[in-house]
């Protein structure tokens, strides 16, 4: 039996920001051409959590989102569908129904998203409600205020409690790295989340700028790698927010490939939280297949 020891989260893992940025910039120099490009574009498409998280979301909007999710581009029916749709808890039932039998998962944000400024019992209720509505995955936010105060036990316990409330549903823990600011904080929050039971760690809500960045993602991937080495358990990664272009998506895939390796290059272990990325990937796929540069007018904007 492997013994899981919880590290002392008051200890900080040193991280050099410039070193991380240089590593990212070097990885960005990978040139992805020809077959490897097409393969990666399709892979990226299959990893998308196609998302709508707006106050004006309605059932109608969510149904349209779901039809895009299951069949991203009608002229090419053999393209993969996206991994999941990501909606608010009160839209879960609608999405679930619309995606019945498609293999597209339903993810729901919960825990007083996006601020997380609510009491634990409210967050637990929020979570249980989303699960009961049929959510396969729960995207929770951590309490950044408590984290920045140094109340790491609070963060750990909260995540553990939500994980329990998730039951069978997978838990993605949003660190909201734009509010944590330093890479050392990102690393620490990643470690807490993984030790507390996260199935995925996720960068951002998409409501705070900066959202996902590659340096932050690299640091989180390295945390996942070290966690894997220490415990033997795989944890997934989801950068979210601000990733709009196919080229960026490929850069993220390179980060994953060269940090964690092939095993993580599946929708089971890596996701993109995005909305407009889907169409840019589709345009690039069609361009690769036909050799003709594409216009957004030919791609549905659901």
């Amino acid at each position: 039996m492997s013994v899981l020891t919880i590290p002392d989260f008051n200890q900080t893992t040193p991280i050099d920001q410039i070193g991380v940025e240089e590593r990212v910039s070097r990885l960005n120099k990978r040139s992805i051409k020809k077959e490897s490009k097409l393969q990666a574009l399709k892979l990226a498409l299959s990893m998308i959590d196609h998302t709508t998280l707006e106050g004006k979301d309605s059932e109608g909007k969510v149904i349209q989102l779901c039809s895009k999710a299951r069949l991203p581009y009608a002229p090419m029916p053999n393209l993969p569908h996206v991994a999941a749709v990501c909606v608010y808890p009160n839209m879960v039932a609608t999405a679930k129904k619309a995606l019945q039998g498609t293999g597209v998962k339903v993810a729901s944000v919960a825990t007083a998203f996006p601020s997380g400024m609510a009491q634990l019992h409210i967050k637990l209720d929020d979570t249980r409600y989303a699960v009961s509505e049929g959510a396969d995955e729960i995207d929770m936010v951590i309490s950044r205020g408590e984290f920045l105060k140094g109340n790491y036990t609070f963060i750990f316990d909260e995540i553990a409690a939500i994980k329990e409330a998730c039951g069978e549903a997978h838990l993605k823990v949003i660190l909201e790295t734009g509010e944590l600011e330093t890479l050392e904080n990102v690393r620490k929050a990643s470690d807490i989340a993984m030790h507390a039971g996260a199935d995925f760690i996720k960068t951002s809500t998409g409501k705070i700028s900066p959202a996902a960045t590659q340096p932050v993602t690299l640091v989180m991937l390295e945390a996942i790698r070290d966690f894997y080495r220490d415990t033997g358990s795989m944890v997934g990664m989801k950068p979210a927010g601000g990733i709009r272009k196919a080229k960026e998506a490929l850069q993220y895939l390179v980060l994953v490939k060269e940090t964690l390796g092939s095993a993580w290059l599946t929708p089971e272990w890596f996701r993109f939280g995005a909305s407009s990325l889907t169409n840019d990937l589709l345009m690039q796929i069609v361009k690769q297949e036909t050799g003709v540069y594409q216009s957004i007018n030919y791609f549905s904007n659901d």
Binding site: I32, K33, K34, S36, Q39, L43, R229, G232, G261, S262
Partner: peptide
């Protein structure tokens, strides 16, 4: 050795970069 030191990361079996 540390626990799980025998865990291997596999960097090669999937998605090889095409010549550029």
């Amino acid at each position: 050795t540390s626990p799980n030191a025998d865990l291997k990361l596999d960097f090669a079996s999937f998605w090889e970069y095409s010549p550029a």
